[in-house]
Amino acid sequence: MPQKHLINFKEFKAGALLSLPICAGYFAVSFALGITAKDAGINAPLAALMSFTNLASAGQFAGITLIMAEASFFETFLTILVINMRYGLMSLTLTQKLAKGTGTIKRLLIAYGNTDEIFGVSSTRSEPLTGSFMAGLEIFPILSWTAGTFIGSVAGNILSERILSALGIALFGMFVSIVVPPATKHRPTAIVALISMGLSLLMYFVPVFSENISSGFRVIICTLTAAFVGALFFPTPEEKKEADQNA
């Protein structure tokens, strides 16, 4: 009779260890978010509540702007929808990596913590993603994100400007570390990343695009286009492996 524990500790621990750099990066970004929220007149408990319930940096910065401007609720909904739509694409990708038989409740819990960074780190794992692994990966960054916001709001001056500046790049360092090593082993991956980068730069710096396309849409358009080109022209490393085995 197989053991039925709620949590597989080994899986949980593997996820938790991988989440440590995310925790550090989240603390810095949410700390800055807390300062922004305070300057906008949102009190610390509300700012922390926003972080705890949203887990979305760009979406929350936009949300603060919307709240300050007393935007309509419909406009708030639409803006958040556009900025955060990329998470839908990430969740879609995640469905194919979940361990077989992951039930609805686990899926609902995993969905809550599916941030850019957690999705990025989970995509580097070769094993199927279990509920325990995802719990370990998600819980500590969620706490860090919430606590960082609260502390940034009540004690924004405890971290020096220089430390905050340095920590500001942490999450991007993570992204580089997720994208570049696989791209050195598989040329099409590099090409897809370069297409995405080129498009992103184009849309950011050419006024005709940057004036009309929000940051959320920019990421979506780049992702869809570059991944589409990849799908049309390039086999994945896994396909290549299977083809080699069959040959």
């Binding site: 879609l92 994208v179 730069l201 799908a231």
Partner: peptide, 26 residues
């Protein structure tokens, strides 16, 4: 579709990094 989903993380994280990374510090 499988290929598309394989490339999504790379395309997505790259678009989020460039050019935002250049404005992430002091």
């Amino acid at each position: 579709v499988k290929r598309f989903l394989y490339y999504v993380p790379f395309a997505c994280l790259t678009a989020m990094t460039v050019p935002s990374v250049f404005f992430s510090t002091a």
